[in-house]
């Protein structure tokens, strides 16, 4: 079976337009020869990429080329799919995220993700916004109130 490999182009929005030098940037994520298979089918072919810190990085490519798969690999969401097999490694801050000692929920806590479609939980908006905090054991009403209000009131993210 021949698989057509479609390249993903990576676009990085520089913090300082003039001084973009990928080599010098501190990278958050780094993948090394990363392959991913759904059963027999290979979805990612030898991905080597560095994602710099404090920048917005975008993956661009045709549909089905593996953008989401790569993204989902960063917080190991692909673990949830049956029959997934990976080769190579992904480093976060220099640490292998597939290391057996890694606590997946701790990883996911630190690697946030926004899905293509909004998927609110069937709870109140308050509970939806405060869900992550509650998971971390923040149950004090006053703190939750403040944070939720702050999150809902202020200007949407990205328009700062």
């Amino acid at each position: 079976m021949t698989t057509v490999q479609t390249p993903i182009s990576v676009s990085i929005a520089p913090m300082d337009k003039d001084n973009l030098d990928i080599g010098k940037e501190v990278s958050t994520f780094e993948t090394k020869n990363f392959n991913l298979f759904y059963g027999e089918k290979q979805a990612l072919h030898g991905v080597n990429i560095k994602i710099p810190e404090h920048r917005v990085t975008a993956f661009i490519g045709p549909s089905g080329c593996g953008k989401s798969t790569l993204l989902r690999s960063f917080n190991r969401m692909n673990d949830l799919v049956d029959n997934v097999r990976i080769e190579g490694e992904i480093l976060l801050g220099g640490k292998d995220i597939h290391h057996p000692k890694v606590d997946v929920s701790n990883l996911r806590r630190q690697v946030g993700m926004v899905f293509q479609r909004p998927n609110p939980f069937p709870k109140s908006i308050y509970e939806n916004v405060g869900y992550g905090l509650r998971l971390q054991g923040v149950n004090q009403r006053s703190i939750l109130d403040d944070k939720v209000e702050w999150a809902l009131k202020g200007p949407p993210c990205g328009t700062r």
């Binding site: 917080n75 969401m77 949830l80 997946v104 929920s105 701790n106 990883l107 996911r108 806590r109 630190q110 946030g112 993700m113 899905f115 479609r117 998927n119 939980f121 069937p122 709870k123 869900y131 992550g132 998971l135 971390q136």
Partner: peptide, 23 residues
């Protein structure tokens, strides 16, 4: 995607089950 949403926020499987799926 509801399950994934919860997991992506750092919830464990048991927490996802208890707080999202079972309700």
């Amino acid at each position: 995607n509801l399950r994934e949403g919860s997991l992506a926020l750092g919830a464990t499987k048991a927490e996802t089950l208890w707080k999202v799926v079972l309700p």
